[in-house]
Structure formats: structure tokens, C-alpha cells
């Protein structure tokens, strides 16, 4: 078989294949539920009501989407330049550490929130600066270095929580001291369990979108991603663009950790992130790397997680079904996107 590009794909083709990918994912979901001994249609319904069926469920989904918007944006920005930042998990924890360092009493004024947010941004940016400099200066592949940094960072967090950051009141549990009230992100509406981290995530998505469509950097990121050779030939400072992309991407991922600590948890613990950094890759890919699409796909992915938890409790299907569905959706979707613009021919 051979792939043949299609010059002008029809609308039916452009929408049909992604729709098919979603249907195929639903079919896999039904099949998995069936294998686990549950009624497939009932299980799918329970996922939907579990994610959206009540005010509480919707708030839970929005809260879960917040870190995913940040990590999804981080991945989308980087992948757009073909900078393979798989280290959002580590950058997330860098931001979380900054929220604790500056939020547990060192600063007492109303300045504490903006200062700690800025510190988180910087920490995440610095963490990705290393791998990107190794890439541009020495040609070291950033996939492996950013992946390995995730493991190193988790051990560093474990060290902090058992050593210098350990909460003296923690009853031996490895967690940090609680943030002071002024270091916490307020709720958007009084009485509703949704913090301003969500609002900031939306603002970040719009800002990233504006950077991409309105600034030279956005144009350069796209050009470098399409062909670094052509960009270099056109006189673009390719390495400088990659470094700027990395700073933006690392900073965005760090805000995920910062907002989880300052908005939701109020302290740092070893289990702050159940893989938000890795899930950000799925979020970004399902959004076709579009910053505003990231918001939608983060909501979708968060809904799958929250809904699967509820369905798992009700129908006894293992909650890991969520991870399987998202991985399946990712693979189906990348294939579907390809088929919108090429035709498979024999020979």
C-alpha cells in the first residue's frame, strides 16, 4: 500500500474520519465494559452522568480539567515546534514546590500569589532549559532527557517531603506544611468548590492562542516545527526559537502544579499528580495542538476520568478503563487526522 496526498479534502472527509475515531473509541469502551461483565450501554451512560450528571460532578470535572489545560498547553506549544517535551510531569512538580516555598509564610502580603506564580513559571522554564540546551548545543535527544527528569524530580520531591519541607504537624505523613490563607487561590464563586486556577487556565489558553496567531514568535514556532532546515534557510534563529518555546512550555506545565497546590490541595504531597504531565500529551494531541482546542479536550479527558471513577464504583469495571480509552482515542485520532488528508492506494 501507498499513501497519496489529497489536494482538496472534502468536508465529509475532514469531519468523517475524526467522527469515526470517536465512534471506534466508544465501541472499544463498550467492549471493555462487556469484558468486565457490565452492561456496555449502561456503563457508557454511567460515565456520562458521572462526569456531567450533577452540579458536584461538573465541578469535579472542571477541577480535574484545570491542571490538564496547563499541561496540555505546555505540550501543544512544544510539539508545535517539534520540541518533544515529555517532562511536563517534572515541570508540574517544580511549580508545586515554588507554591510551597513561597506560600508557607515566607511572604505574608497580598503579593504572595503573583510572586509565587512567577516563581513557578520560572522554575518550570528553567527545568526545560537544560534539556533544550543539550539538544541545541550537543544534539542530545530531548525525549529521553525530559522523561528521565520526571523520575529524578519525583525522587527530589520525596526527599523534600521527608526532609527540609516535611510538615512538623504531619503525623509522620510525608507532606508539606499547609499554605497560608493569602497564598491560596480564592474560589471563583463563593460556596462552589471551583478555584481561580481554572479561570487562569482559560486565560492562559487565550494568551497562548494570541501568541500563536499574532506574534512573530508564534509564526517562528510554526515554521521551525514544519521544517527546521527551511526555517534556518529563511534566516530564522532556530535554536533561539526552540529555547523560547521551551521556556514557555516549561512555565505552563509548572503552573499546573502551582494551581493544584495553591488552588485545590493547599499543600504538596507525593501523590499531587496522577500523571497530569503525561495525560497532557493526550490532551494536546486530541486538540490537534490548538490552544483553544486544548480547553475542550482537557474537559473531555477530565470527564472521562471523573466519569470512569463513578462508573467503576457503580458497575465494578476497573477504573483503569479511563487510561485505556484515552490511549485508544489518541491512536485512533492520529490515524483519523492522517486519513483526512491522504488516500490509501494499492501498490
Amino acid at each position: 500500500m501507498r499513501l497519496e496526498p489529497i489536494a482538496n479534502p472534502t468536508t465529509a472527509r475532514r469531519l468523517g474520519y475524526p467522527a469515526l475515531a470517536i465512534l471506534a473509541t466508544l465501541a472499544v469502551a463498550a467492549l471493555l465494559a462487556r469484558i468486565a461483565g457490565a452492561d456496555p450501554l449502561a456503563a457508557l451512560g454511567q460515565i456520562a452522568t458521572g462526569a456531567l450528571g450533577s452540579k458536584l460532578a461538573i465541578l469535579e470535572t472542571l477541577n480535574r480539567a484545570t491542571p490538564l489545560i496547563f499541561t496540555g498547553l505546555a505540550v501543544a506549544v512544544a510539539f508545535r515546534a517539534k520540541l518533544w517535551n515529555i517532562g511536563a510531569e517534572a515541570q508540574l512538580y517544580a511549580g508545586a514546590i515554588m507554591a510551597v516555598v513561597l506560600g508557607t509564610g515566607a511572604l505574608g502580603s497580598p503579593l504572595v500569589l503573583p510572586v509565587s506564580a512567577l516563581a513557578a513559571l520560572l522554575a518550570g522554564a528553567m527545568l526545560l532549559l537544560g534539556p533544550v540546551l543539550l539538544k541545541t548545543r550537543l544534539g542530545v535527544d530531548e525525549v529521553v532527557t525530559t522523561l528521565l527528569l520526571n523520575f529524578i524530580m519525583l525522587l527530589f520531591v520525596s526527599y523534600l517531603l521527608e526532609g527540609p519541607m516535611k510538615d512538623p504537624m504531619g503525623m509522620g505523613w510525608p507532606k508539606s506544611a499547609a499554605l497560608t490563607p493569602e497564598a491560596r487561590l480564592p474560589r471563583i464563586v463563593d460556596g462552589l468548590r471551583l478555584h481561580w486556577g481554572f479561570g487562569l487556565a482559560l486565560i492562559a489558553a487565550v494568551l497562548v492562542w494570541l501568541i500563536q496567531i499574532r506574534t512573530t514568535l508564534g509564526f517562528e514556532i510554526r515554521a521551525v516545527g514544519q521544517s527546521p532546515e527551511a526555517a534556518r534557510f529563511a534566516g530564522m534563529p532556530v535554536n533561539a526559537v526552540l529555547v523560547k518555546t521551551a521556556l514557555l512550555s516549561g512555565g505552563l506545565a509548572a503552573l499546573a502544579g502551582w494551581s493544584e497546590v495553591a488552588g485545590l490541595k493547599g499543600h504538596l504531597s507525593q501523590d499531587l499528580s496522577p500523571g497530569f504531565g503525561y495525560t497532557g500529551i493526550i490532551v494536546a494531541m486530541l486538540a490537534l495542538l490548538h490552544p483553544l482546542g486544548v480547553v475542550l479536550s482537557a474537559l473531555f479527558v477530565a470527564g472521562i476520568f471523573v466519569g470512569s471513577d463513578a462508573m467503576s464504583r457503580a458497575a465494578g469495571v476497573p477504573t483503569y478503563i479511563a487510561d485505556m480509552l484515552l490511549a485508544t482515542a489518541l491512536l485512533f485520532m492520529v490515524l483519523a487526522i492522517l486519513l483526512t488528508r491522504v488516500r490509501v492506494v494499492r501498490g
Partner: peptide, 17 residues
């Protein structure tokens, strides 16, 4: 890159499931 990471997520989740 994308397919490989997708396979890692799918295989890991399959084992857990």
C-alpha cells in the same frame, strides 16, 4: 513519538486493567 507514547500508555493501562 506520538504513537510510541500512545503505545506505552495503552500497554501500561492494559496491564493495570
Amino acid at each position: 513519538h506520538v504513537v510510541g507514547l500512545g503505545i506505552t500508555l495503552l500497554a501500561t493501562a492494559s496491564a493495570s486493567f
